[in-house]
Amino acid sequence: MNQSDSTPFAVTIQNLTKKYGSLKALDKITFSVHKGELFALLGPNGAGKTTLVRILTGLTRPSFGIAQVNGQAGLVPQALNLDYDLTVSENLLIHGLLYHMPYPAIGSRIRELLAYTEIAHKARATIRTLSGGMKRRVMIARALMHDPEVLFLDEPTVGLDPHIRRKIWSLIKRVQGQGTTILLTTHYIEEAELLADKVALLDHGTIVALDTPRNLKARMGTYAVDIVDDNGLATNYFPDKESARKAMLDMGEQGRAITLRQVTLEDAVVGLTGRTEK
């Protein structure tokens, strides 16, 4: 999906800083997310992704700067936070009441969302009895209960098997298709590459790069040649297939494994974060 720059902003962040003692979890961050966009925050452990999401959803106070969400926010936090002794429906019911939904609307919304997230058969099961993938889907269903305009997903697919991850990815895309703005954090590069309209690379509390996945990749080139030999792994980047192929022929020697492939977002991430390593 392409967002023109004239679309209004769903999230505005200016000079946002969060300090924990002397540690700057976020350091003067500035960016905006357009309405309807799927924005991925990519970064290693401790980069500040969760801190940013918690500030945007009112769970943490910023030290200074502006963090503004236009419209109701919905949140799927990184750590599961469900009531284990209550049933799936009861968890959603409490959420609906917390967001001032009228009682009759809550019941039909629960049925609709449980069908949508494919856990309708577990409506009366207590959370304790669900698998990890089901709990994640309950979390997403719960966050969607009050039909938020902006949905924050903090590492929504951590610890899930590839099938369930794909299911959740397709669910996320469908939610975006209905017009919801989504801000997703992840350290899975392929997740950001597959889903996001825009990616911000966060490292040590600062934004190292922010662009569409396509433009980020283009910074490295279009084709990559990996050479694996006794010296380890080396990757060279090329603007087009022809030059890459030519270089490959020149490099071909005994005892080397050479692969030609398209540049991925991972190349861009490695290239961009490598330069900023402290």
């Binding site: 109701q72 936090p77 599961l80 936070n81 469900l82 009531d83 917390l98």
Partner: peptide
């Protein structure tokens, strides 16, 4: 432990 308190903190109540 459950962290459900965050649900209350984030909710408009």
């Amino acid at each position: 432990y459950l962290k459900v308190f965050e649900e209350f903190q984030a909710a408009p109540i």
